[in-house]
Computed example of a mutant assay.
Amino acid sequence: MTMDGQTNQTTKAAASIGPEKNPQRLPLSNKRADTLWGYFFIFPQFVGLLCFSMIPLVMAFVLSMMNWDGFGKKSFVGLDNFISQFKDEEFRIAIVNTLYYTVLTVPTGILLALLVAIGLNRVKGKILYRLIYFMPSITMSVAVAVVFMWLFNADFGLINMYLKEWFGITGPMWLTDTRFVMPSIAMLSIWMGLGTNMVLFLAGLQGISSSYYEAAEIDGASRWQQIRHITVPLISPTTFFVTIMSIIGSFQVFDQSFVMTSGGPAKASYTIVFHIYETAFVDFTFGKSTASAVILFLMILTLTLFQMAISKRWVHYED
């Protein structure tokens, strides 16, 4: 048989294969139907994103350049609201306190969550322990803050009582001393966020192949060397995600400060979100309040982009 004859037979055989016999080729009508169904399923999410995220975000940028008390007419003031916020001493105090809170909570919270996850990954009944550790994360922050107000009470709180009975130490004025109020709020936040970060780290640890540890044991690596050279590098994608989310959450702290101290004493727990709240709903200067919110958004965005830029240096993905 000639080459031309083979070619003709191959062409006829390919033409005889219909859409049912060749699953890789779908009719054009089926492709359009799949596309329409795809748009149908993403439409509710798209509407929610547009109405509750994108439009309010655009309106916030517009309102940040307006002078408005919430009732009268709006007047355009340009960048005056931003300039006044940077000149405002309370806003600068709020930035410093928020950064201080971030430094207290983020590294400590990540380290404790990683240690707890490593411990739970090697014990039986990790599902029960995971539930116990995660319960504070789903508890209302206001309720937790009220409980911790009692624990931190300088006169009859449990913490000072045990410090006195067990160690003979007179506990500090946790929530009324400017030196201890922010560490007190930080301890509450670390306790609340420990469960969420622990679950994320535990999921990352369970994704690491046991063959790495078996090879390390054969080579005589100690437990610490395995954690340092295997666990930490391979858990770095989870660490990267937890770090970003923890920093974003720390910049948005409000409930604890509002319930426990109302921003005091002497503005020692006065955070950026607390400043946004007071500027809007106490002073009724919504333009300046929105300008503070936009500044906070830009700060979080800048830090997130910076972390993503440097992540290539220390985040390692398992091949």
Score class of each variant (00 low, 15 high):
Ala14Leu: 15
Val282Leu: 08
Asn160Thr: 10
Leu188His: 01
Gly168Leu: 06
Ile235Asn: 01
Leu115Phe: 11
Gln307Asp: 05
Thr139Pro: 06
Gln206Pro: 10
Met182Arg: 10
Lys124Pro: 04
Asp34Trp: 15
Met135Thr: 11
Ala266Thr: 13
Leu114Tyr: 05
Leu114Lys: 00
Phe86Trp: 08
Phe71His: 12
Leu158Ala: 06
Met140Val: 10
Met54Gln: 09
Asp88Asn: 14
Phe284Ser: 03
Gly48Ser: 05
Asn22Gln: 14
Trp314Gln: 01
Ile138His: 06
Ala14Trp: 14
Phe71Ala: 10
Tyr212Leu: 13
Phe61Glu: 02
Ala268Ile: 05
Val116Tyr: 02
Tyr213Lys: 09
Arg25Glu: 13
Val315Leu: 03
Ser29Phe: 13
Lys73Gly: 07
Val199Gly: 00
Met149Asn: 14
Gly78Ile: 07
Ile185Leu: 12
Val282Asn: 11
Tyr212Met: 11
Trp314Gly: 03
Val62Arg: 13
Met65His: 08
Ser246Leu: 03
Gly5Lys: 13
Leu175Met: 11
Met59Tyr: 08
Thr302Pro: 10
Thr279Phe: 05
Leu131Lys: 07
Trp224Met: 12
Val123Arg: 13
Gln252Glu: 04
Glu318Asn: 14
Pro183Thr: 01
Thr239Ile: 09
Leu296Ala: 03
Lys164Asn: 11
Val62Gln: 10
Ser236Asn: 07
Gly249Val: 01
Phe41Ser: 09
Val199His: 04
Ala14Cys: 13
Phe43Lys: 10
Leu234Val: 09
Trp150Pro: 12
Phe240Met: 07
Asp88Tyr: 03
Cys51Asp: 08
Pro237Met: 05
Ala221Gln: 01
Val282Phe: 06
Arg32Val: 12
Trp224Pro: 01
Ile295Gln: 02
Val47Asp: 06
Tyr212Phe: 11
Leu104Gly: 03
Ala291Gln: 04
Ile127His: 09
Trp174His: 10
Gln225Lys: 09
Phe86Ala: 05
Thr102Arg: 03
Val232Met: 13
Ser16Pro: 12
Thr261Asp: 04
Asn30Gln: 15
Phe241His: 05
Tyr317Ile: 07
Ser84Asp: 11
Val242Tyr: 05
Gln252His: 02
